[in-house]
Amino acid sequence: MESIGKEFELKRQGKIARLTNRTFKFDARIKEGWFSAVYFLKTKEIIKQRRPKQQVTMQFFQKKDAILCGVDEAIALLHTFAENPQDLKIWALNDGDKIKPFETVLMVEGFYEDFGYLEGLIDGVLARRTSVATNVYNVVQAAGDKQVIFMGDRDDHFSQQAGDGYSAYIGGVAAQATHAMNEWWGNEGVGTMPHALIQLFDGDLVKACEAYLATYPKDNLVALVDYHNDVITDSLNVAQHFGDRLYGVRLDTAANMVDQYFLRNQHEFGQEDLRGTNVSLVRRLREHLDAAGYPKVKIIVSGGFDADKIRRFESQNAPVDSYGVGSSLLKVNIGFTGDCVRLNGKEQAKQGRRYSFNPRLSAVEFSTVLEDE
């Protein structure tokens, strides 16, 4: 894991080769235009018949401060499906670069009929990958030195996991829920138990944990303690039973539930919303674990976390060791635009657009994304 981290840090600095086109499992129908907007396909045909061999410069940008991702994939897409890809001239930033609004992140020069129909696909690749990477980066910044676990497997179509996992890694999170999320960068998925495991042992958390350890004795045991909506009682039970073998407990209290601890101690009701996983509940849990002699048991929280919620927890010094985050990381909130801004070396673009060369761009060699890794 450490070596992978170093490799990708070097990659972000532009010091090693980009991911190759063999990293990505492209659908062969891209070549047929199956995923391209029809007006791009019609334009390609018109230009082939009426105005061929016109060299255009196409540049891509977006409108926010962001963490760029999807560039390697976009380049591989061009080199795999463009006509005469060896003749294209491409300049690009690197996955992981911090970018500004309207900054050109990718620029392509070539005959329009060779690559123009890929414009929308490139926009989409950059939009999703950059959105996820930026969302993850913002969560990581909010969490400070606390671990963040990417738990986005249930929040989108499974076919997106490899790209989302890579984007999450570029954003700063290496702990991810599925093996598929790690496919492009070589790690393995992490995780312990869902509520279903406890249910299958008739709600007996201790027996579920015993079975987990018997089956995976080398794993850190993290008990999921909100099954009975009584996280303090269940955490103390597993701590007393497993002692030093218990690595941590995870709270995933539903947003419409108030934990039994507060229902037993209603004098603690106040201005704070005590539904779901909240700061007061985490604080009381930490106090009870410490008082019982288990200060080393870590507390992992999940359920509705995003950058804002993590910032609230951190601003109140919530005794959290790790945050599990899912759906908020997958929101596509950054859109990219591809514009043709030069024609045969002369500026030609719609009103409001202009050629904007970015000195941070680096030329991309055709062989860079074709060689075996």
Score class of each variant (00 low, 15 high):
Leu88Gln: 01
Tyr137Ile: 03
Gly5Arg: 15
Trp184Cys: 13
Ile16Met: 11
His195Asn: 08
Ala254Asp: 02
His179Ile: 10
Ile16Trp: 02
Arg360Leu: 13
Phe269Asp: 00
Asn256Arg: 12
Thr130Ser: 07
Pro101Gly: 14
His241Cys: 02
Phe115Ile: 10
His157Asn: 11
Val71Met: 08
Ala82Ile: 07
Met107Phe: 05
Arg29Phe: 11
Gly345Leu: 07
Gly243Tyr: 08
Leu200Pro: 00
Gly152Pro: 03
Arg286Asn: 12
Phe201Ser: 06
Tyr112Met: 10
Leu343Met: 13
Ile46His: 02
Tyr227Arg: 03
Val325Phe: 05
Ser367Leu: 13
Val136His: 01
Ala82Ser: 14
Leu121Arg: 04
Val297Ser: 03
Gln55Asp: 05
Gln199Asp: 03
Phe269Cys: 01
Ala74Trp: 00
Ala180Thr: 14
Gly352Asp: 14
Glu347Gly: 09
Phe305Gly: 03
Gly171Gln: 05
Ile46Cys: 02
Ile16Asp: 02
Val238Asn: 01
Val369Leu: 05
Thr43Ile: 14
Leu121Asp: 03
Ile16Val: 15
Val279Leu: 11
Asp226Lys: 02
Val282Gln: 11
Glu347Leu: 05
Ser315Arg: 15
His179Cys: 13
Asn256Trp: 11
Ser315Asp: 08
Arg18Leu: 11
Gln62Asp: 08
Phe150Arg: 00
Val125Tyr: 05
Asn21Cys: 08
Val108Thr: 02
Val341Gln: 04
Ser327Glu: 00
His241Pro: 00
Asp153Phe: 04
Ala142His: 07
Val231His: 02
Asp308Arg: 06
Ser280His: 12
Asn135Ala: 11
Arg129Gln: 15
Arg264Ile: 08
Arg154Trp: 08
Leu263Phe: 04
Thr337Asn: 11
Gln316Met: 14
Gly338Asp: 14
Val222Asn: 00
Ile47His: 02
Asn229Leu: 09
Ser362Gly: 09
Glu347Arg: 09
Leu93Trp: 00
Ala177Cys: 07
Arg342Val: 06
Asp87Cys: 05
Gly116Ala: 08
Cys209Ile: 03
Asp234Ser: 13
Glu371Ser: 09
Pro319Lys: 02
Leu41Ser: 04
